[in-house]
């Protein structure tokens, strides 16, 4: 797309799909990701795939249409199918050569890496959604407070109206006093507002050295060298899994914090809405009284 340089991550897929459709896909996810992604493809994506079109805007596009027959470690796709069946078609695990079992171990390690990576992706998506939810909750809290302020303003205006209605009766009429069951409180911040108070708690802990910032994914750290035998390949996969699980752990910790914050904010909203309800109920009672007084005055 942008010239003739070959893209660095152009690694062949185990199947013979001619190109990928994810604009930035690293394309090294082995067989198992197909299980997850193929069912979700839209018809347009399928069309792109069959046409062999490379839709990656960051790709240089020289190698997009080459058919691939081997995977990351040079295994035949037929072998992958055999591993998927756990050697049921070829006499079970016991009847396999050491080499076959080593290849099988590598396949399983890759499959596990893909599963963990998928978990991480899902957790990332959840975090994105949760972040949006928190923003919406914050907005909702602001709206409740504003509504309550408006109720307090209505109270002031109504008090003036009641005074006017009281003085409208004429010389010989009985003076009218509005009935009030309770005072309008206006918005109440429940307890000490945790949202404001704990804002920089994490930063303070950081400075104290109590929590280390979550270490970034170390996928891009330079590997010692290309793995040569099955054992090394499995070790590489294990390292990838460790990194991904570490990231997943950090993410889940963050999600827990988000859930706690959501809970406490919703609790605050409930309490604030209770106060608002009480005030609006009182206002309603007083408006009814003022209307009755107005009707009486008009009836005279």
């Amino acid at each position: 797309m942008f010239g003739s340089k070959k893209s660095p991550l152009k690694v062949a897929k185990p199947s013979s799909v001619e190109s990928w459709t994810n604009p930035f896909d690293s394309n090294d996810e082995g067989m198992d990701t197909k299980k997850y992604s193929s069912s979700r493809k839209t018809s347009s994506e399928r069309a792109l795939t069959t046409l062999g079109v490379n839709t990656n805007p960051f790709d240089d596009g020289t190698d997009a249409n080459k058919k691939s027959s081997s995977t990351l470690y040079g295994f035949q796709s037929a072998n992958w199918n055999k591993y998927k069946n756990d050697f049921r078609d070829s006499g079970g695990l016991e009847n396999q050569s050491v080499q076959e079992l080593e290849s099988y171990a590598v396949y399983k390690a890759e499959e596990t890496t893909n599963s963990v990576t998928n978990c991480l992706k899902i957790a990332e998506n959840i975090r994105e959604e949760a972040t949006q939810t928190l923003v919406t909750l914050h907005q909702q809290g602001e709206q409740i407070t504003r509504s309550h302020h408006v109720a307090a303003d209505i109270d002031h205006d109504l008090t003036r109206g009641e005074k006017l209605l009281g003085s409208l009766g004429g010389l010989f009429s009985k003076t009218w006093k509005p009935k009030k069951t309770r005072a309008i409180t206006g918005p109440v911040i429940v307890g000490d507002d945790p949202v404001r108070r704990k804002g920089n708690h994490l930063e303070q802990r950081e400075k104290l050295g109590l929590t280390s910032a979550p270490k970034g994914q170390s996928k891009l750290r330079s590997p010692p060298q290309e793995p040569t035998n099955a054992f090394e390949k499995v070790e590489v996969e294990k390292n990838k899994q460790d990194d991904a699980l570490s990231d997943l752990s950090d993410l889940l910790g963050e999600l827990k914090g988000m859930a706690v914050d959501m809970g406490s904010e919703i609790e605050r909203h409930n309490k604030a809405l209770n106060h608002l309800y009480d005030d609006v109920d009182e206002l309603n009672f007083r408006v009814i009284g003022a209307n009755q007084r107005g009707r009486r005055l008009l009836g005279k």
Binding site: P8, N22, P23, F24, N27
Partner: peptide, 25 residues
């Protein structure tokens, strides 16, 4: 440019970039 592409692909594989980010990048 190669490294640039690799870095973005790696990030996007985890968190897909929206159209605004894609345009600017």
């Amino acid at each position: 440019v190669g490294k640039f592409t690799e870095v973005i692909k790696e990030f996007d594989s985890m968190t897909p970039l929206d159209s605004w980010k894609t345009t600017l990048l």
